[in-house]
Design a protein around this nucleic acid. Structure first.
Length: 625
DNA sequence: GCCGTTTTCGGCCCGACTGTTTTCAGTCG
């Protein structure tokens, strides 16, 4: 039984309980348990069999019993009872903005409305008129909510939200009276997708900035326009909320509106135990109502006896406990990154030359760049003969610019786990990233075996975008991430945090898991154009959300340390398997072997030819320094 | 339903905005 199935059962129970009008704290208890289970990596079976289920904070006797029953019977009595009262499909109605559990119960009880289509029809036919609390405006809002729901079902990718937020901030900065302005919410926490954009302004006079905000050129619809809060829908269906606060409360408001919700609830509970209450205006004593903090976020956390917590950590994943112990991680920053390990040129599907990419990397203050073009079988992949030329070109440009460029490759992992490139080419390279780009629809076992085989290959340094997902476009392929992490740990292969904003793969949660298991990570942008080198900030954000420090990320090393690390792995790997390109893949026989015959195999003692004796390589340049 | 350094009962984060109502309920974050 998958954890997803158990969580889905709990979510359905929570939603239907909510619609059924049960004690709201009971509903919240279910949602808290879902969050808590989500944060735990172990499978449900492991938790149950080891008796640790009840140890999870938020899972009590009743929910543990539900889970146990669900594992045995595939359903629970509680859920079946709720389903008899309210059909499951009602839950979809909750996704409509402005429609909550009370409205859902009302239209179902009175009109037997069960689907979005039925709700729309009921609204249009005037059947909602006369229901309690149902006026003309509310009905119009429901109809508009349905329109929106149809257009806007996915969350917005981080980079798109960031761009929009920056443009709104730019437009509001100059409005008279605005003293400070800060994008808050999930955007400030650098979550991979954003629901709404929250922007906070500090001002003594909020009317001008509110008025300006609701009339910005991009505004499509004004959802709310108050003196401290306004909400608009921008042209691309992204909702932006603006909140205005007095400068005396800016820190408290920044803390409050940055969230996450779970983090704030935990923080508030903690404050209450100290006789303090926190809201967006400040921290107050419960007894005397005296304000003790609010101007800065540091003050707010200090009032509760904690150091300031970086926004990326504010997910209620243990950061408050660690802060209390004074053991918060010193998170990696963009400035710690010394080089770019993953990019493409027009030799494969990139847009620019080796030299252009190298110059762009140097402009960004990097010490080095790795060129990692594609291998076949992709149409644009560089074939072995040509790859030899590419290596020469890389060495030539590196010498000419006096800038270390690692010769690398992003080689495809074949369905059987072998690599689509001749082994003698791979041996000449400074860095080998292996990635899956095809045959995504394998079973979990097959895909895991495929990748595990690649990780066992001593020529592989890095596993690229380990789950293959494209945010909002393609789910990750089925793979046992725990097995991959375990194998990476065993073999010393580095796992990539791919910072391309449409990938962000590993995700923050998987990256955190890998880090906790002691597996080294590297942040690459997968740049296909020099502008893409700036995606590094997104990769760093994922690393920060994964609690990574500088020492956890391999490309914070100097070029010398990095190349030594890559060589060391090669020496360390003892267990070696056959490393081959599938027979007959390449029409020519560039390695001298006869077409159609079995390709040569690899032995551990052979090693790669990238040693200090390889005078032309960047590796040796690094070592001489 | 969960939880407990005062508690096994009685709290549980809390305020803004909207709409419908005329003092408040529902929704949202």
């Amino acid at each position: 039984m998958s954890k997803e199935a158990v969580l889905a059962m709990l979510e359905e129970t929570a939603d239907l309980s909510d619609i059924a009008g049960e004690n709201p704290f009971k509903v919240r208890a279910y949602r808290r348990a879902i969050d808590a289970l989500n944060a735990v990596k172990d499978s449900i079976e492991e938790l149950v069999s080891s008796g640790r289920l009840r140890e999870i904070e938020g899972v009590g006797e009743s929910i543990a019993k539900d889970i146990q029953e669900f594992l045995e019977r595939g359903t629970t009595q509680r859920l079946e009872k709720l389903r008899k009262r309210y059909p499951s499909q009602l839950r979809r109605l909750l996704e409509i903005q402005g429609v909550g559990p009370k409205t859902v119960a009302l239209v179902y009880d009175r009109l037997n409305v069960q689907t979005v289509e039925e709700l729309e029809a009921a609204a249009k036919e005037g059947k909602l008129n006369g229901l309690p609390g149902m006026g003309a405006q509310k009905i119009r809002n429901i109809l508009e909510g349905i329109q929106l729901w149809r257009q806007h079902q996915a969350r917005v990718p981080l980079h798109i939200a960031l761009e929009l937020a920056e443009s709104v901030v730019e437009s509001l900065k100059g409005v008279p009276g605005v003293m400070d302005i800060l994008p808050a919410g999930s955007l400030r926490r650098w979550k991979e997708t954003i629901g709404d954009i929250d922007i906070l302004v500090s001002t003594k006079d909020s009317a001008p900035v509110m008025d300006r905000f609701v009339t910005l050129p991009l505004v499509q619809k004004v959802l709310a326009h108050g003196s401290t809060k306004s909400s608009v829908l921008m042209a691309n269906n992204i909702q932006v909320d603006l909140r205005a606060v007095d400068p005396e409360s800016f820190g408290a408001a920044a803390q409050y509106f940055t969230g996450s919700k779970a983090h704030n609830i935990s923080l508030r509970s903690r404050a209450l135990k100290k006789g303090l209450t926190i809201n967006e205006y400040g921290v107050f004593r419960v007894d005397t109502e005296e304000k003790v903090a609010g101007r800065t976020e540091e003050e707010v956390y200090a009032a509760v006896g904690l150091p300031w917590i970086p926004p990326e950590l504010r997910e209620d994943r243990g950061e408050l406990e660690r802060a209390e112990e004074g053991r918060l991680p010193v998170l990696i920053t963009l400035a710690d990154i010394k080089g770019e390990p993953h990019c493409h040129t027009k030799w494969s599907d990139g847009a620019q030359s080796v030299e252009e990419m190298a110059r762009a990397a140097r402009v960004r203050g990097y010490e080095y760049l790795a060129i990692t073009d594609h291998s076949p079988p992709m149409g644009w992949g560089v074939k072995p003969e040509r790859y030899k030329e590419l290596i020469k070109e890389i060495r030539r440009v590196s010498d000419q610019l006096g800038f270390p460029i690692l010769a690398g490759i992003e080689v495809d992992i074949a369905p059987d786990g072998s690599l689509y490139m001749d082994e003698d080419i791979l041996r000449q390279l400074d860095i080998v990233i292996a990635s899956v780009h095809s045959a995504f629809k394998m079973t979990k076992e097959q895909m895991t075996e495929r990748i595990v085989r690649a990780l066992e290959n001593p020529l592989v340094d890095v596993l690229g975008h380990p789950t293959g997902r494209l945010i909002n476009q393609r789910p990750p392929y089925e793979v046992d991430i725990q097995a991959i992490v375990k194998k990476a740990k065993e073999t010393g292969v580095i796992l990539e945090i791919n910072g391309s904003p449409e990938r962000l793969d590993l995700s923050d949660e998987n990256a955190r898991y890998a880090r906790e298991e002691g597996v080294p990570l590297i942040i690459g942008t997968d740049a296909h154009h020099e502008h893409h080198l700036d995606f590094m900030k997104f990769g760093v954000a994922v690393a920060r959300r994964a609690w990574c420090e500088k020492k956890d990320i391999i490309n914070t090393l100097s070029v010398k340390e990095l190349t030594e690390r890559l060589t060391a792995r090669e020496k360390k790997v003892k267990k070696v398997r056959k490393v081959v390109a599938p027979a007959g893949l390449f029409p020519a026989a560039p390695t001298g072997r006869k077409k159609g015959t079995a390709p040569p195999t690899q032995s551990a003692s052979a090693g790669k030819a990238k040693t200090s004796a390889d005078a032309g390589s960047v590796k040796s340049q690094g070592k001489k320094k």
